[in-house]
Design a protein around this nucleic acid. Structure first.
Lengths: 228, 228
DNA sequence: TAAAAACTAGACTATTTGGTCAGGTAAATG
DNA sequence: CATTTACCTGACCAAATAGTCTAGTTTTTA
């Protein structure tokens, strides 16, 4: 229940790790099973939250005996943490830098597209993250969000600079980031609701394109911007 | 696990209800305890989801013995349903009508304000709702969302009419509703994250005003609208 | 190929879970 | 004031839970 998160029960967890990271032949089984378990866990946690998820449920979805799951991850929390490690890695990879000399319209448009794309490719991760935050981020408060504060500050400074240079309308940069955040994330998180509203069975690629187009248009125009 | 939802274990649940709704003196205790339990349950469910919440936990938060909780609500699902009954009632009360002859800018601004206000006054309800949807709305799919489909269709028809009359930019009305929805809801649902980003302990009234102002400005301008 | 390391998995345990029940007390009512 | 009705609650139960342990099987390595 503390703030340690890089515990990585992963690469070299239980077994007496032989010297360094030797992923030659050893650990192939390990790798495969870890993937299986994490994939199953992602679904279970996104479906039932941390407390509502059972190790048994994860095991069944991964088609492994429970004891085997607990052989790879010594307890439920470790699985949860490992998931967020992966998610944050992916996250950091996607959140590209923006620089003061960039074109504001292009930069924001790219950001919106990247986030919508993320909703498309990793909806479970998005929901998992959302659930954790809604529940007050009891497990990740320190670790996860402090990094995010820095991240938001960095971007909003750039945006503020654009504003000061008269390259876009005067809007609160932090609010703008939150707006992009929430509106893009929504397609993953509230999928169930959107599908029902639009009377569909599942999303198709076109839906995401349409959403990204809409958001880009409205938000850019809302900031007094236009795509070149 | 079916689609019944108006089960209302409430007003006259277990005890052989005497004739009609006689809330003279009888049922005062009942009323009070129901409120206690529902308030506690709202917090527990919003914190842990349906499966993660325990009746014991609700009981403790309500400061009642578990058996007493189960005296008023015969099981966990009933409590959950009762909560959503209340939420949907409130919801329906807030979602005011919009008419083709209204001013688009004013109507949308009012809508945004009403939704931000809802995030302020009923954050737990918002989170509860969000969790249910994220998890795929297993319990409410039919009931809750079909009504919502009608609601969205009604509004989007009006918006479309505004567009056809050239009173605002051509934007997808359904997407617009989703945008307003997500961006306003976000303040309640992701409170934990926002507070950390903004380095605050709690929201104050000004924060909501500021958010509402921002969203109104950007979204209206994004639709080519201006407040009169 | 033999010893060591990594993996598999059933049996087991202590605790927690949702929910019942029976025997009570307090409150309304005739 | 008596009796019916509403309310309260501890004791109880079967099922599920997180996690351990041990005994075995496969894989790697020397």
């Amino acid at each position: 229940m503390t703030n340690q998160i890089k515990s990585k029960d992963s690469q070299a967890g239980r077994p007496s790790s032989p010297s360094t990271t030797q992923t030659k032949r050893t650990g192939r089984i390990r790798e495969r099973n870890r993937e299986l378990i994490l994939a199953a866990a992602e679904e279970e946690f996104a479906l039932h939250g941390f407390r509502g998820t059972t190790v048994q449920g994860i095991a069944e979805r991964a088609d492994l005996p429970k004891s085997n799951v607990l052989y790879y991850f010594s307890n439920k929390q470790r699985i949860y943490y490992a998931l967020f490690d992966d998610i944050m890695d992916r996250w950091n990879a996607v959140l590209s830098e923006i620089k003061p000399e960039d074109d504001p319209a292009l930069a924001l448009a790219n950001f919106i597209r990247a986030k919508v794309e993320m909703s498309r490719t990793h909806p479970l991760a998005s929901r998992l993250f959302a659930m954790e935050i809604i529940q007050g981020a009891p497990l990740l408060k320190n670790h996860l969000c402090i990094g995010m504060r820095e991240w938001v500050r960095g971007r909003s400074e750039v945006i503020q600079q654009w504003i000061d240079e008269g390259r876009m309308e005067r809007v609160d940069p932090v609010q703008l980031i939150l707006l992009i955040w929430s509106s893009t994330q929504h397609y993953a998180d509230f999928q169930a609701q959107i599908l029902i509203i639009e009377d569909k069975e599942a999303y198709v690629q076109k839906d995401f394109d349409h959403a990204a187009d809409f958001l880009t248009t409205v938000i850019l125009r809302g900031c007094g911007l236009e795509l070149p």
